[in-house]
Design a protein around this nucleic acid. Sequence first.
DNA 1: GCTTGCTATTTGCATATGCAATTAGATATC
DNA 2: GATATCTAATTGCATATGCAAATAGCAAGC
Lengths: 249, 249
Amino acid sequence: MMDTRPDAVKLDGAGPVYDQIRRAIRDLVVSGQWPPGTSVPPEHALMEQLGASRMTVHRALVQLAREGLIIRRRRSGTIVASPPASHAMLDILSIPQEVEKLGQAYAYEILSRSDGKPAPDIAERFGLKRSEKVTHLVVLHRAGGKPHVLEERVIHLAAVPAVATEDFARVPPGDWLLQHSLWSQAEHAISAVGAQSEEAALLDIAIGEPCLLVERRTWNQDRPVTAVRLLYPGPRHRFVGRFGPYGQV
Amino acid sequence: MMDTRPDAVKLDGAGPVYDQIRRAIRDLVVSGQWPPGTSVPPEHALMEQLGASRMTVHRALVQLAREGLIIRRRRSGTIVASPPASHAMLDILSIPQEVEKLGQAYAYEILSRSDGKPAPDIAERFGLKRSEKVTHLVVLHRAGGKPHVLEERVIHLAAVPAVATEDFARVPPGDWLLQHSLWSQAEHAISAVGAQSEEAALLDIAIGEPCLLVERRTWNQDRPVTAVRLLYPGPRHRFVGRFGPYGQV
DNA sequence: GCTTGCTATTTGCATATGCAATTAGATATC
DNA sequence: GATATCTAATTGCATATGCAAATAGCAAGC
């Protein structure tokens, strides 16, 4: 057995007791004073040491377990977890918000629209059956007058019937959908591609210029709602995320 | 006042009661039966309706509130929240894990190493002061014999003294650091760039070919630990993440 | 050695109880 | 009408209690 004499848990008197306990233990873990594998004192011991009831200690520990900092097993006790494979959290803002955050003027333009059964190339690009009725849109978003991102989207009429009577004159499709549709699952994929000729022309860059491609598909209870390809030109654009181990912010 | 007659909460008898309640309400929210703004019945009402104690109901509601699905205020009651700006969660695996997941053989090679004060071009690329001592590494990771990703990394000697005596012969630097260093903050940036000549040669692609560039910097309590640039060739590579509204999985 | 079963430890869950904090809405007062 | 005050609804927190479930470690039996 390893020596697992843990440094004492110290409360700071600020806020609810269960949260003081939670923070105290969290700090011991993230500061490395309790490295992974350290055994956390059992509830009864903490209860005595801290003068709190077992349920209060329990509440703190349950929450830490849900956050992934500790692992609890009946009879075996509680140990500090190893930091899991991290997730990078990237904020997904709507495009108008994104541009506004850059401090630039936002504008958009619907370049094309078609309704009904999809053309073969579109069906293939989005993995659609030819029989599924969709609305297909190409939208150019501008920031400060310059092309910011090229959006190509299909919206499933079965999932969002209201799209048939919407012309997207005032609100771009992404934002409109947030208001007029529901989704329960989404999938993102981020990759780098070279701009094709048409895309390059619209984005005002050279053919083959590297672009960030974000492909997002959303479903509501396994029924597809919308799929979108967002093409961001070159090194101009980057996704940034900040986070801590154990998935914290 | 809006009509806020909520559909009944129904338990399914599977697992702990508090979790049945949590799931039942979560499902009503994510399915849209309780749209944002709907008022959730007060604890006493749910308690009677479900035959559970107030603390049990409370536990479910507290958890839903922490997950951001509902908003609770004393006296005002509980309402369904609006979905927040989403985040895309991307799994960040270590590179060996990443390759293994692809079902390919993993290998890596240290292409260069230098210790001490950084050369000017390196200092600039990573935003270092000339006086900070670092170890600078270039590593090529292969999957199934082919170049998978080119890694360029600096490790701060002040934060990780042990790096001075490690040759990374058995474990690549990224994985080694997970074992031998602590971090409390990290920042990712993902962008698309064209391969420069040297990079292209090492990755066995054409100059200018689009690549995904992941730049990650980590700190421990505001002191820099390591910074890395990972260059993934072309459309071969994509980051994928799945998630739901309200930040769920 | 191997398996089987017992026992004590530790966490998990649910309840009942009581009080504190917040505040919407009603009421009283100016 | 405006303002101050009160009241009651609602959530937040902590405790005490009891039992259930899992299981590590030990003991007994083969």
